[in-house]
Amino acid sequence: MTLANRPALSVVAPCYNEQDALPEFLRRVGAVLDSVGGTSEIVLVDDGSYDRTWQVMTEAAGRDPRVVAVRLMRNHGHQLALTAGLTVCRGERILIIDADLQDPPELLPDMIALMDGVDGKGGADVVYGQRRQRDGETLFKRATAAAFYRLIGRMTDVEIPLDAGDFRLITRHVLDLLTAMPERHRFVRGMVAWIGGKQVPLPYDRKARVAGESKYPLSKMLRFAADAITAFSIVPLMASMTIGWVMAAVGFAFFVYSIVGWAFGHTLPGWTSLMAAVGLLGGMQFLMLGIIGAYLGRLYDQSKGRPLFMIRDIVGGPK
Results as ranks from 00 to 15, higher is better:
D20H: 13
D20G: 11
A21H: 05
L22D: 06
L22W: 03
E24Y: 01
R27A: 09
R27Q: 07
V29F: 01
G30Y: 00
G30L: 02
G30S: 08
A31H: 02
A31P: 01
V32C: 01
V32R: 01
L33C: 02
L33V: 02
L33N: 04
G37L: 03
G38L: 10
T39A: 06
T39W: 04
E41Y: 07
I42F: 09
I42R: 05
V43A: 13
V43S: 09
L44G: 01
V45H: 02
V45G: 04
V45D: 01
D46F: 03
G48L: 12
Y50S: 15
D51A: 13
D51M: 11
D51K: 11
R52H: 15
R52S: 15
T53G: 11
W54E: 14
Q55E: 14
V56Y: 00
M57H: 03
M57F: 08
T58G: 05
E59N: 13
A60H: 04
A61Y: 07
A61C: 09
P65A: 15
R66C: 12
R66T: 08
R66D: 09
V68C: 09
V70E: 06
R71I: 10
L72H: 05
M73Q: 14
R74G: 07
R74I: 00
R74N: 07
N75Q: 12
H76T: 14
H76N: 09
H76P: 00
H76A: 14
H76V: 15
Q79R: 05
Q79T: 00
L80K: 13
L80N: 15
T83A: 05
A84L: 02
G85I: 03
T87V: 02
V88L: 03
V88Y: 01
V88Q: 05
C89G: 03
C89T: 10
R90C: 06
G91P: 07
E92P: 00
R93G: 02
I94F: 08
I94V: 15
I96K: 01
I97A: 04
I97D: 03
D98W: 03
A99N: 06
A99R: 07
D100S: 15
D100E: 15
L101E: 09
L101Y: 07
L101D: 08
Q102P: 00
D103C: 07
P109H: 08
A113Q: 13
A113H: 10
M115G: 13
G117Q: 10
D119I: 00
D119H: 12
G122V: 09
G123D: 11
A124D: 12
D125F: 04
D125Y: 06
D125G: 10
Y128M: 10
Y128F: 14
G129R: 08
G129L: 12
Q130R: 15
R131P: 00
D135W: 10
D135M: 13
L139S: 15
L139H: 10
K141Y: 10
R142E: 12
A143I: 01
T144C: 06
